[in-house]
Design a binder for these strands. Structure first.
Lengths: 192, 192
DNA sequence: TTGCTTGCCGATCAAATGTTCGATTATCAT
DNA sequence: ATGATAATCGAACATTTGATCGGCAAGCAA
């Protein structure tokens, strides 16, 4: 049980480096087993705990808990930095974290400060999932007068409206012909 | 060539959903091939372009460019971006964009709203480069009273101080014993 | 002691894997 | 037409895969 934790760590490291799960044979090599049935048993144990899972064809893949983050302690909480984080074991990339539907996702650089109160600064990048369907409250990229606009989708009476997150900008009321390009599912920014 | 782009998208979607690469047989099923050699040929093509790679045991895994996403840089003008299929599209991966020194970089989840005016919301992730040297004006993760704190580094007279980006929080004046854990080089956030 | 559980080994099996080859088709420039 | 190229197919190959079985040793409770 306690040993399994170390085994899991090794598997996470492998996945982090290779971006693919090892085969049973590779697991043996990795963990020092000499029989693949040992690997199979270990995998069965870890599956029960939700750390591993299988493809429909029986191949190994990460389970839901596989990515449980050992995040470098909360900013507020105490703890020494050396203790909270040792290795650079990021099992998942930012891309995988932010993008769920790669084929429908594009990055757009934000111009202007109309969403600044929502924490979107000029030149930020937003991750946009291209689709027409959006819910009220979603941040959307809409097409107004042939131009892209980043706003929050709202509804007034029976009409959809676009709210900026900056009191200096007006609410946009497209009166029926509102075209939505996509929905903002993420955002990122680089400093320096 | 153009068709391969669609094929790649399908593989990316599969990987994003399954967190594992499909086998050749699965690729056939996914893309409508009826021979695994077709899948092998496609994989060989995508490997050459750096989108795919192989494990040491021959299993498929994502290549370096696998996580690239299309970048719609200047969004302002023009009606539809789909018309802008003039050859080389800009692509980026968020990880490469945000992380320059992987071995010295960690992600920290932000607790609290002390930097809200700087566009850092609670639960945002900040990309922190671990180093002691920072410049005035840099956003830093400092260790004050044994706790991590996200603030902007400033100087008053001959002392370093930490400015929050929220008028509700006080300026921190460590009086000499200021320990800097790292410098914020990026930030990202996921919606929904 | 006895009995039970847990983890690992060694061996075996059917199924799935990636690879390779030759043949076929479609496209396009000559 | 002719030839070249690219993409797909169909079939065969040797390996590797994950699954399964019985057996063994260590730990622990009764």
């Amino acid at each position: 049980m306690g040993e399994d934790t170390n085994y899991l760590s090794a598997l996470q490291d492998y996945y982090s480096a290779e971006r693919a799960m090892p085969s049973f044979a590779k697991i043996c090599q990795l963990l020092g087993f000499s029989s693949r049935s040992s690997a199979a048993a270990l995998v069965a144990r870890l599956k029960l705990q939700g750390y591993l899972d299988s493809t429909e064809t029986g191949r190994l893949k990460p389970g839901k808990r596989f990515f449980e983050r050992e995040l470098a302690g909360d900013v507020v909480k105490a703890g020494m930095p050396s203790a909270t984080y040792d290795g650079a074991r990021d099992t998942i990339t930012v891309d995988e974290y932010l993008v769920e539907k790669p084929s429908k996702t594009i990055m757009i650089q934000v111009k202007g400060d109309s969403m600044i109160d929502a924490g979107i600064l000029p030149n930020d990048m937003v991750v946009v999932e291209k689709r027409q369907m959006a819910n009220v409250g979603d941040m959307v990229v809409a097409i107004v007068d042939g131009e892209f606009t980043l706003k929050t989708l709202g509804r007034e009476k029976d009409e959809f409206v676009l709210y900026p997150a900056n009191p200096a900008y007006p609410v946009i009321r497209p009166h029926g012909n509102l075209e939505i390009f996509g929905v903002v599912v993420g955002q990122f920014r680089k400093y320096g």
